[in-house]
């Protein structure tokens, strides 16, 4: 399959944006950044996704993660902003063949372009006691890692407790993340995608509000 820019399928009127220019090594680098992010919760990892020009509201980093992770057998849920864009649908279908599902609980991966309005974490697949891996990984786009210290993290991957902050997130989000950890080993894993940085909070990370 050529990864050159080409005409999008019917239903879209834009030229389909290109995927990775070096699919093997770009995906490997993006994965290593994400793997390190998952292994060291809260720690920001650098990946330059600026070569990608996906249709809005998908971001370059969101597109890079999609190209790195998605396949014809990974069900994807998109938040309303993304799901409304025929260009985004065409981009993801062409480059990943991933089936797009309409309810969060069916999804292996979810992409949220407007995290301030995002669905509650409990609406995603939490996995089962026997198969906790069958849960949703939720990717939040447009994240800024400010220096405000929202929460303190501890647990696997953390030598000592670290503070973490990422915006935007909905009201009450950190309480949801706490509740998510409380049901460990079930629960969702969170990926925070910024412009050239990513961070992750796996379900194993214990969260305490800073100063509480």
């Amino acid at each position: 399959m050529s990864l050159e820019t080409r005409q999008a399928p019917a239903g879209s009127n834009a030229v389909l944006a290109a995927g990775f220019s070096d699919p093997v090594h770009d995906a490997q680098r993006c994965f290593r950044a994400l793997m390190n992010a998952m292994a060291q919760p809260g720690k920001r990892q650098t990946y330059d996704a600026s070569q990608l020009k996906p249709p809005v509201p998908l971001t370059p980093m969101g597109a890079a993660l999609a190209l790195t992770l998605f396949d014809y057998d990974t069900a994807i849920w998109l938040d309303p902003g993304l799901a409304r864009s025929l260009d985004v649908l065409a981009f993801l279908r062409f480059h990943t063949s991933a089936p797009i599902v309409s309810t969060p609980v069916e999804a292996s991966f979810a992409i949220v372009s407007d995290p301030a309005q995002m669905s509650a974490l409990s609406n995603f697949n939490q996995g089962s006691a026997d198969y906790p891996d069958r849960s949703t990984t939720v990717i939040l786009l447009n994240q800024t890692f400010s220096t405000d210290e929202h929460v303190e993290l501890s647990g696997p991957g953390l030598k000592e407790p670290e503070s973490f902050s990422s915006t935007p997130v909905p009201n009450g989000f950190w309480r949801q993340v706490q509740a998510n950890n409380a049901q460990y080993p079930r629960g969702v894993d969170l990926v925070f995608a910024g412009t050239d940085k990513i961070a992750a909070l796996p379900r194993s990370t214990r969260i305490s509000p800073k100063g509480a």
């Binding site: 292994a39 790195t68 992770l69 998605f70 894993d189 796996p202 194993s204």
Partner: peptide, 15 residues
């Protein structure tokens, strides 16, 4: 690779 990478991420999240 993508399939194995996805499995590794789950493994890291559930030590």
């Amino acid at each position: 690779k993508r399939m194995i990478r996805r499995a590794l991420l789950k493994g890291i999240a559930i030590p």
